[in-house]
C-alpha cells in the first residue's frame, strides 16, 4: 500500500498541492484524473522526490518518501514514466532501454519487452528522439518494466498520440496490470482509464475532490467529463 497524506507542494512561491490524500493498494491500478494544472504531474513528481518544497507524508514500504532522495525512492521499487517521456537524446534506443538500473528481482525480461514492443528491438541503434511519439511512449514504459519496480507512475501516457497508438498503450497497461504491478495512471481522458483502473481519484486545484470505485465509474462518467472539460 502506498499512502499519500495531506501532501502539499510548491513551485517556488506558488502553492500547487493543497493537501492531497490518496491510497494506492498493492497490485491495483489507480487513476488520477484532472484538468491541466490541477496538480496531477506535481503529485507524481512529489512521489519521486522531484519537487523542491513539499509537506505532508507519503508512506511506502515503511518509509516516508518525502524524506528520501529520488534515487532512494527508485531503489524502493517505484518508477516514473514522465509526461514528457524523458527519452535521452544523446542515447540510442537500446541505451535508453538499459539506462535505469535493476532495483529488484522480477523485472520484465528483455525478450518479453521486445515481444511487447517489437519496434524497440528493430530501432535499437537509432537515437531515442528519432522515434515517433508513440514509439517513444512505448520505450518510456518499457524502460521502467525492466527495473523490477513494482509501483509504476504513468503520467499521461496517451497525451498527443494517435487513437490506434492509444489503444495499443491501453492493451499494454492491461497486460502489465495482469502481471500484478501497482500502477498510478495520470490522465485527462476519462474514457481511457474507464476499463483499466480499479480506483479513480479526481483532483482539482491541488486537492482530491472525489474518489470513485471502478464499478461506479461508468455511471458517473458524465460528471467526470464535466470536471475534466476545459
Amino acid at each position: 500500500m502506498l499512502e499519500i497524506r495531506n501532501l502539499h507542494a510548491w513551485y517556488g512561491e506558488s502553492h500547487v498541492l493543497h493537501g492531497v490524500d490518496m491510497e494506492v493498494p498493492e497490485g491495483r491500478v489507480v487513476s488520477l484524473l484532472g484538468r491541466n494544472g490541477a496538480g496531477k504531474t506535481t503529485t507524481m513528481r512529489a512521489l519521486m522526490g522531484l519537487m523542491g518544497r513539499t509537506k505532508g507524508e507519503i508512506r511506502f514500504g515503511g518509509a516516508d518518501l518525502l524524506r528520501l532522495r529520488p534515487d532512494q525512492i527508485a531503489r524502493k521499487g517505484i518508477a516514473l514514466c514522465p509526461e514528457d517521456r524523458a527519452i535521452f537524446p544523446s542515447l540510442s534506443v537500446t541505451e535508453n532501454l538499459f539506462l535505469p538500473p535493476v532495483v529488484a528481482k522480477g523485472g520484465m525480461s528483455v525478450e518479453r519487452i521486445y515481444e511487447l514492443f517489437p519496434n524497440i528491438r528493430e530501432r535499437g541503434s537509432s537515437r531515442g528522439t528519432q522515434l515517433s511519439g508513440g514509439e517513444q511512449q512505448m520505450l518510456a514504459i518499457a524502460r521502467i518494466l525492466r527495473t523490477g519496480a513494482r509501483v509504476l507512475l504513468l503520467d499521461e501516457p496517451t497525451e498527443g498520440l494517435a487513437p490506434v497508438i492509444v489503444q495499443q498503450i491501453a492493451r499494454t497497461i492491461a497486460e502489465i496490470k495482469a502481471l500484478g504491478f501497482t500502477i498510478i495512471l495520470v490522465e485527462q481522458n476519462a474514457h481511457f482509464v474507464e476499463g483499466l483502473a480499479d480506483i479513480h481519484y479526481l483532483i482539482e486545484n491541488g486537492v482530491i475532490v472525489d474518489r470513485l470505485e471502478g464499478s461506479e465509474f461508468a455511471a458517473k462518467i458524465d460528471r467526470v467529463d464535466r470536471l475534466l472539460a476545459v
Binding site: M48, D71, A79
Partner: peptide
C-alpha cells in the same frame, strides 16, 4: 553503459536520479 549514464545525466540529471542512479 557507464558512459550512457554520464551522457544521460548531462541531458537530464533529475530524471537519471529518479531512475535510481546516485547522481
Amino acid at each position: 553503459p557507464l558512459g550512457a549514464k554520464l551522457r544521460a545525466a548531462t541531458d537530464n540529471p533529475a530524471m537519471v536520479q529518479a531512475f535510481g542512479i546516485n547522481v
